[in-house]
Design a protein around this nucleic acid. Structure first.
Length: 430
RNA sequence: UCCUCGAUAGCUCAGCGGUAGAGCAUCCGGCUGUUAACCGGAGGGUCGUAGGUUCGAAUCCUACUCGGGGAGCCA
C-alpha cells in the first residue's frame, strides 16, 4: 500500500492509499464516522461507513480519541464539501496509540493554559500555519540575500561585553571570565563586511529586559545585513526591496495558511514600492499637531509609533533621529551633525519597529571620541576600532526583527505565537 | 521597576454576604454527511495561599504567590 502525505492526496484521486497521522477531531453517528486527520502537511477528513468495513474496524474507529496516532487506508475521492476538495473513503484502520485525555480540547482556552501546553498547542491548525509562514519568511529572507551575493556570516553568541551598551544582558561565566549572551551581532558583522563585502547574519538574540508587551520576547531572532561601500540611502533601498520581496513571497506560497489565520490579504497586497519616508523632524511636527506633548530630542513611545504608522498603508521609514537618541556607532549627517544617518522602519497596523538601520561611523577619530562620550571601554573594543585603522570605508547595515515581522504578516495579537517555544518574562517552560 | 486586571470542576466562565452553577471535555446510551455536530443520562470542587472582619466569606479587608495587558527599553 502506497503511503502519501495529506498535501499530495489530490494527485491520487480514485486510488487506494494509506495516510499516517493523528486524529484531529471526530464526529460520529450510529453508522458513519468522520475522522479529521492531520499529518503535519495538512488536514483531511476520512469517512468510514459501517456497511463498508468490518464490525471490529468500525468499533475501533468509533472509539478513537483526539490526537490518537493512526494509519488509515482508503480510496481518495474528490469532494466538493471538503475544504481541501478531497476526502478519504476509509477501508482499514490501524491504531498506533489510543490517546487519553488530550488537554487541548476543541473549546476555547486561556493564554496561560495554552502557553503551559505549547508543546501540544503547536499541533493546532492556527499554530501550524504560523510556523509554516515563519519558515517561508526565513526562506524568503535567505533567498533575497543569497540572490544578491551576500555571504552569510555567523557572529558569536557568547560575547565578552555589550555590543551597544544600552540594554541588560544575560550574564554567564566563560570558565573564569564573565560572558554575556549576544544582544546584537552587528559589530562583528562590520568586521565581516570588511572581509567579505556584503554579509548577513541570522541568529538568536537575547535581551534581559523585563519587558512584558505583545511586541517583546526575551529570546528572538534577528537578521543583520552589513554592507561595505554602501550609504544610508542605498541601505534603505535594500530594506524596502527586502520587505516587498518577503511579503510577496508569503502571499504567493502561503495562501492557505493566511486564510487559516483569517489574515486580511488586501492589507498585505498594498505592500509595494515605494514606501513613504519621513524625517524625525516631520514625525515630531506631526505628533505635536495631533496634541502630543513631545519636543525635538525626545524618543518615540509605542503609542507615537503606532500613530505615525497609522497614517500609511505601507511600512514607513522614519529617518535622521537626533544623535543623542541613537547608538554610538551611527554616522552623523555631514550637513546636520545633530542628527544621524539612520532609519527605523515602522510596520503598519501598530506592529511597531521591525527594522533599525544606519550608516556607521567610518572616521577613526570620531569613533574614538564617541567611545569617550559614552564611557565605553576602548580596550575591550580595540578590535572594533581596528576596523577604522586598516582600510576604513563607508558602510551601512540594519537589523530586522524576525518575530515582529512574522506577527505583522500573520496579523497576530502577540509575538509569542511567532516562535515555536517563546522565551517570555517569567516563562521558561516548556 | 511601575500602573492595571485576574485566580471558582480537566478547560472556558457565571455566582459578588446565607446549602457550589453552566457549557465544553470524560464515561454510558441514541443518531448514515458531520464541520467548535446534535439529543438523553452520569461522575467530577479544601472557590490560588495565609491571616482578618462577620452569627455566617467563593463573595468584604490585608499580605503573599502565580499569571494577563500596558509603560519604560527595544527588534
Amino acid at each position: 500500500m502506497k503511503t502519501v502525505t495529506i498535501s499530495h492526496l489530490g494527485r491520487h484521486i480514485g486510488e487506494e492509499v494509506a495516510i499516517d497521522g493523528w486524529l484531529h477531531a471526530k464526529r460520529s453517528s450510529g453508522k458513519i464516522v468522520f475522522l479529521q486527520m492531520r499529518d503535519g502537511t495538512g488536514f483531511v477528513q476520512a469517512v468510514m461507513v459501517r456497511s463498508d468495513v468490518s464490525d471490529d474496524t468500525f468499533t475501533e474507529a468509533s472509539a478513537l480519541t483526539q490526537e490518537s496516532s493512526l494509519r488509515i487506508t482508503g480510496i481518495v475521492k474528490a469532494e466538493e464539501r471538503a475544504p481541501s476538495g478531497v476526502e478519504l473513503q476509509a477501508i482499514t484502520l490501524e491504531t498506533l496509540q489510543l490517546t487519553h485525555d488530550y488537554p487541548i480540547t476543541p473549546k476555547e482556552h486561556g493564554v496561560d493554559f495554552l502557553m503551559d501546553h505549547r508543546h501540544l498547542w503547536i499541533r493546532s491548525p492556527r499554530q501550524r500555519s504560523i510556523l509554516k509562514i515563519r519558515a517561508e519568511i526565513i526562506r524568503a529572507i535567505r533567498a533575497f540575500f543569497d540572490d544578491r551575493e551576500f555571504t552569510q556570516v555567523d557572529p558569536p553568541i557568547l560575547t565578552p561585553s555589550a555590543c551597544e551598551g544600552t540594554t541588560n544582558l544575560f550574564h554567564t561565566k566563560y570558565f573564569d571570565e564573565d560572558a554575556y549572551l549576544t544582544q546584537s551581532g552587528q559589530l562583528y558583522m562590520e568586521a565581516a563586511a570588511m572581509a567579505l563585502g556584503r554579509v548577513y547574519s541570522f541568529g538568536p538574540t537575547f535581551r534581559a529586559e523585563k519587558s512584558k508587551t505583545r511586541r517583546h520576547l526575551i529570546e528572538f531572532w534577528m537578521i543583520e545585513p552589513e554592507m561595505a561601500f554602501t550609504t544610508h540611502e542605498e541601505s534603505v533601498e535594500i530594506q524596502e526591496q527586502l520587505i516587498v520581496y518577503v511579503v510577496s513571497h508569503v502571499l504567493r506560497h502561503c495562501e492557505q495558511e493566511l486564510r487559516t489565520l483569517g489574515r486580511d490579504i488586501d492589507r498585505l497586497e498594498k505592500v509595494v514600492s515605494p514606501f513613504p519616508k519621513i524625517s524625525y523632524d516631520e514625525a515630531i511636527a506631526f505628533l505635536q499637531k495631533n496634541g502630543h506633548e513631545i519636543t525635538w530630542g525626545d524618543d518615540f513611545g509605542a503609542p507615537h509609533e503606532t500613530e505615525i504608522a497609522a497614517q500609511y498603508e505601507q511600512p514607513v521609514f522614519v529617518e535622521r533621529y537626533p544623535t543623542s537618541l541613537k547608538a554610538f556607532y551611527m554616522k552623523p549627517d555631514p550637513m546636520r551633525p545633530e542628527v544621524v544617518l539612520c532609519a527605523d522602519l515602522l510596520a503598519p497596523e501598530g506592529y511597531g519597529e521591525i527594522i533599525g538601520g544606519s550608516q556607521r561611523i567610518d572616521d577613526a577619530d570620531l569613533l574614538f571620541q564617541r567611545f569617550e562620550e559614552h564611557q565605553l571601554p576602548a580596550d575591550a573594543y580595540s578590535w572594533y576600532l581596528d576596523l577604522r585603522q586598516y582600510g576604513s570605508v563607508p558602510h551601512s547595515g540594519f537589523g530586522l526583527g524576525l518575530e515582529r515581522t512574522v506577527a505583522w504578516i500573520c496579523g497576530l495579537e502577540h509575538v509569542r505565537e511567532t516562535i515555536p517555544f517563546p522565551r517570555l518574562l517569567y516563562r521558561l517552560y516548556p
